[in-house]
């Protein structure tokens, strides 16, 4: 048994097909914690560190295609931040500089934790996840990709190749509550993205459900509360009702980090603030 270090995506797929028991290693920031504490004992590891196809990012018309190996630090790069501001904001809240240098967006998807910071943004953006294996290539909408807490639709022989999101079509916000001013796991996270031309607002919620959640009722309700040509709320007070509607979509639990009540309350406040920043300034 060995550590597999493929140097191309094709080889990675082939090796994973041969070793479906192998753990796929991206930045290491999740897997290694489990290994270090003896919670996971890999018989084999397939490292994606040297797969060049996963590393870059590019713009394809109105779509931003991010290789799975793009790190959080790279997501904060102004060139990406301009195209996906909320993704950059979310990336900057992840861990510390050291973690952001190692952790990748593909890794965030691979782990599929409800607290993964980029996931609410990807949910709000209706991102699609590209999975490849020796048998082919498929893309899944995020809503179909995330199926439970740390459970995803990725097959054991598949590698996350990229994730695609639309280029920003309006203001975006990501806000995250944690009891420390840096380096903290999300107690509640909220992404809000607007499509000015398409006249819609989408919301993604993190850490308040088994998977990243959307708030369809709130999203539908708010469309008519916005003066789309002016880019403003008709009545700024509507942001409060929006917050309540978004909070109603949350499905939080009590755990050692926070109570469900506090999390739901946070979602309401974050939604109101996000909408106000986007449409009341």
């Amino acid at each position: 048994m060995t550590v597999l270090l493929p140097d191309s995506l094709d080889r990675a797929c082939a090796q994973l097909a041969d070793h479906p028991e192998a753990h796929v290693l991206a930045g290491g920031t999740d897997l290694m914690v489990e290994v270090n504490f003896g919670h996971r004992r890999p018989e084999a590891v397939l490292s994606l560190a040297r797969v060049p196809e996963l590393k870059g990012w590019g713009r394809d018309g109105d779509t931003l295609v991010l290789g799975a190996g793009v790190t959080y630090t790279e997501l904060c790069d102004p060139a990406i931040a301009e195209l996906a501001p909320a993704l950059a904001q979310a990336a900057r809240t992840v861990g510390s500089p050291q973690i952001r240098n190692a952790g990748t967006i593909g890794g965030n998807l691979g782990t599929g934790s409800p607290a993964g910071d980029t996931l609410p943004v990807l949910a709000a953006l209706d991102a699609t996840v590209e999975l490849v294996s020796v048998t082919g290539r498929r893309t899944l909408p995020l809503a179909e990709y995330c199926i439970g807490p740390k459970r995803t639709a990725r097959d054991a022989t598949e590698i996350i190749a990229s994730v695609s999101v639309p280029v920003a079509r309006g203001p975006q916000e990501y806000l995250k509550v944690g009891p420390r001013n840096a380096m903290v796991i999300s107690v509640a996270g909220l992404a809000a993205v607007a499509d000015i031309e398409g006249r819609r607002v989408a919301v993604g919620l993190g850490s308040v459900g088994p998977v990243p959640l959307r708030a369809p009722e709130a999203e539908a309700w708010v469309v008519d509360r916005i003066d789309w040509s002016a880019g403003r709320l008709v009545d700024p007070a509507d942001a409060t009702e929006f917050g309540s509607l978004v909070a109603a979509a949350a499905r939080p639990i009590d755990d050692h980090r926070a109570t469900a009540d506090y999390r739901r309350h946070c979602v309401s406040v974050l939604a109101r603030r996000a909408l106000t920043r986007m449409f009341a300034a």
């Binding site: 290491g28 920031t29 914690v33 590891v45 560190a49 050291q98 973690i99």
Partner: peptide, 17 residues
């Protein structure tokens, strides 16, 4: 040239760096 936590790097995957 990237600052990382070495506790989160699988040593055997750092071959070639």
């Amino acid at each position: 040239d990237r600052l990382v936590c070495s506790c989160l790097v699988l040593a055997a995957s750092a071959v070639g760096t």
